[in-house]
Design a protein around this nucleic acid. Structure first.
Lengths: 232, 232
DNA sequence: CCTGCATAAATTGTCAACAATCTGATTGGT
DNA sequence: ACCAATCAGATTGTTGACAATTTATGCAGG
């Protein structure tokens, strides 16, 4: 078999150098895609067998997933896949608002002109994609996260980038994949992305931060509503 | 009466339930205090011997320290204690500014009245301490971080709290312990803390965030200056 | 004297067995 | 019938040996 899902997170350590690392990627993908259900118990021996490795590297993978908050572990008792409740998602979106707001500010200060042009081109692509698929593909294909990712990179702040890309985005992806697809607010999102890009191009740090925060805050309101409806 | 420092980290896994966890705490302390020098190589077998445990739990401890960015690890090659350069510290302070700014905003919205009173009392304590020791003790004793910690708690946002307390503060502590003690800007810091506390008491979210950001940004300017002087 | 390759030493990655701890059910008492 | 203590089963924590990989060493050739 071995064909695994491998949805990929932008950086593909598909055949990474170490067993633990590959297993980590596999389990991560399985959690995000929902093949490992939320709240389900993780039994080391079972998973080790399932992935065809020994418990050593598997434990390492689990520990990394714990730090990433995809798994919750209690000493001597075992670990479970995290359960995404409304409270946790709110914390995540709030943290994201603070971090990405700052990232947008820094991007407005530091992003090279050619990258700004590329960012604009990316949005053109998105617009075309929205036209073709009636907007559905925008979030499913994660073009949304793609935009945010570029700004995080442009911020030049490694800490912010690593935390957004390595943790927060993963959890948001997980929520998207599982709580059904999100509504077609693609045109709205695109328009806001354009505003943000414009502020960055104008080197207006203050505005870039404000717009980004408003954008994320608005996204949370939508997500929150969906979560609450589903919880009935 | 328990008065010891112990201010921080809240959870004392002094005699934690698992070997790996205790070792993790030990190594962390050794790195922060400088007993394990920056950039020094970490050899698993050596450390295992030194701490009197086998390589298994030690590896787990190292992995956790890696996630905390106190150690840098490259597959098959080994790990070294992180080297705090100016660039990294700037990233950390910038991220902290974003996160704590948000935390202050949330605290202004959510902090219970009695906790606000306690916060004010804490600042009185600090003022007394400054009077006694001429300000030196303020940063050495980490009363500073204590104040910030309380606000992070009051934010009610677990993600922000865990990242500040579990990662950013640790790195800042490390920088303090090693690059010599910081200057006596204690009175300034205290005054700013009072302003922030007042904004929270007044439930002025906007002001609380702005003041906190200015406070941290100012702190960075001082630290940056010291780092650059030392680097000559 | 320097460069490059082959070999050896050191170090990390992986494995399977053993010990410690927790969970759940069973049994006995009230 | 209900609660508590005890015991068995399952699961995690720990260990030491083995395999794979990298880094250092030394030798031959230019």
């Amino acid at each position: 078999m071995q064909e695994q899902v491998s949805i990929s997170t932008a950086e593909d350590n598909a055949d990474s150098t170490t067993l633990a690392s590959r297993t980590f990627d596999s389990i991560k993908a399985d959690i995000i895609s929902g093949q490992l259900a939320q709240g389900s118990k993780i039994v080391e021996s079972d998973l080790a067998l399932q992935y065809g490795i020994s418990r050593g590297p598997l434990r390492e993978a689990i520990h990394r997933l714990e730090q990433m908050k995809l798994i919750i572990r209690v000493p001597h008792a075992g670990s479970r896949v995290v359960t995404l409740d409304t409270r946790m998602m709110e914390d995540i979106y709030t943290a994201r608002e603070a971090l990405e707001g700052m990232a947008a500010r820094l991007a407005a200060r530091l992003m090279p002109d050619d990258e700004i042009a590329a960012l604009s081109a990316l949005l053109d692509q998105h617009e075309a994609a929205i036209g073709e698929t009636d907007g559905k593909a925008y979030f499913q294909r994660e073009g949304d996260i793609d935009f945010h990712y570029r700004i995080a990179v442009a911020s030049g702040n490694r800490w912010i980038l690593e935390n957004l890309n390595g943790e927060l985005y993963q959890l948001i992806r997980m929520a998207r994949h599982q709580s059904g697809q999100y509504p077609a607010r693609a045109p709205t999102a695109l328009a806001q992305h354009r505003q943000i890009a414009a502020a960055i191009a104008a080197r207006d740090e203050e505005l870039a931060e404000i717009l980004m925060r408003r954008h994320i805050s608005g996204a949370w309101q939508i997500v929150k509503q969906i979560l609450e409806e589903q919880h009935d």
